[in-house]
């Protein structure tokens, strides 16, 4: 049985009582020829209404995997091998596919990385938005198209009456991502999973899209899991940060606290790697080495070979998540020392 201590620690780190999304001890496995790979290992977190939880980490750390697991869109043979996912208090990780299909789009909106390829090139954006509305809310064609226009207006697309009949290729990248956001909002979901929503966009557009997302969360109370490798985006938008490393959650705390005082050495490395605009730093810090492959995770703390502060204990025992004054962290320095 998994230790319940980290789950309790998460609950204390969560600001409100009734979470939109509650993930408990979630594990995702990929059975392969050379044994089972654990892509996610015992992840727990909560998401409150209107909250944006930023999830950061390197490629392969399990950020996107977390989002896909919640939506149950894992590519086979990947599957949830442990833990629970609760949406609005109801357990959803064991629902049959037919019921899950009804939740997707309705309760859980999605935003993908590349707006260029997320939209079907052969249908107008209005058609695609109206389709989502009709599938989930059972509106008539005309009502759905009216709502599609309203949605386009809400996500800041100029002259939506005209634009609703345009095809995806007639929009710029930033405008297209706004269409994708309109699609995510179409059925008034309670949770949005945004997987690298600004990575494919110009920097100047990124800020616009992020402030749009922030505004929508504040207005509608929709909670958002914001998956990104971009610390800057998270610092600007998120309420809390979850740091992932090698399929494990290693730190979770409010953004300001993490930026001010990162507790995990890996988080510290990530923040040190953000270029500051006002200060002139002689050299950005970098984290030596690279994240271990999932079939070669070292014993003890997964980060220990790259950690500047690692002690003998880090190479033997795996640190559990323990409470800090503001959040949780999985590091022996927070749990009695590294020796």
């Amino acid at each position: 049985m998994p230790d319940t201590a980290p789950a309790e620690a998460v609950a204390t780190a969560s600001p409100t009582a009734e979470p939109v999304l509650s993930v408990r001890n979630l594990s995702v496995s990929f059975p392969g020829r050379r044994g089972v790979l654990k892509a996610l290992d015992d992840i727990s977190f909560d998401l409150a209404p209107g909250e944006i939880l930023g999830m950061v980490g390197e490629s392969g750390a399990g950020k996107s995997m977390t989002g896909l697991a919640v939506q149950r869109l894992l590519e086979p043979p990947g599957h949830i091998s442990g833990g629970e996912v609760h949406l609005l208090g109801a357990r959803i990780d064991q629902l049959p596919e037919s019921q899950m299909e009804r939740l997707r789009g309705k309760q859980i909106g999605a935003i993908f990385q590349d707006p260029l390829t997320s939209l079907n090139p052969l249908f107008t954006v209005g058609h695609q938005i109206a389709e989502t509305i009709r599938v989930h809310l059972g509106a008539s064609r005309r009502e759905a198209m009216d709502q599609a226009r309203d949605l386009l207006r809400r996500v800041g697309i100029p002259s939506p009456d005209e634009r609703v009949n345009h095809y995806p290729h007639q929009f710029s990248g930033g405008m297209r991502q706004r269409v994708v956001i309109a699609l995510a909002l179409a059925a008034q979901p309670r949770l949005i999973i945004a997987d690298e929503p600004t990575t494919a966009l110009d920097v100047s557009i990124q800020a616009q899209i992020m402030s749009l997302l922030r505004r929508l969360c504040d207005e509608t109370g929709v909670a958002m899991l914001l998956v990104t490798h971009d610390m800057g985006v998270i610092a600007q938008t998120a309420d809390r940060i979850a740091v992932m490393y090698a399929g494990r959650l290693i730190e979770l705390a409010p953004v300001q606290e993490v930026l001010r005082q990162p507790r995990h050495p890996y988080t510290r490395g990530l923040i040190g790697a953000i270029p500051a605009l006002r200060k002139r730093v002689p050299r950005l810090t970098q984290i030596d080495g690279s994240m271990p492959r999932l079939d070669a995770i070292p014993p003890g703390c997964a980060f220990n070979p790259r950690c500047p502060d690692a002690g003998p204990r880090c190479r033997v025992d795996r640190p559990e998540l323990t409470a800090t004054p503001t959040g949780i962290v999985a590091c022996w320095m927070n749990a009695g020392g590294v020796t």
């Binding site: 939506q71 997707r104 789009g105 999605a110 993908f112 389709e131 989502t132 599938v135 989930h136």
Partner: peptide
């Protein structure tokens, strides 16, 4: 994939 994610 996106169509699946929006519940089509």
């Amino acid at each position: 994939k996106f169509a699946r994610a929006r519940g089509v």
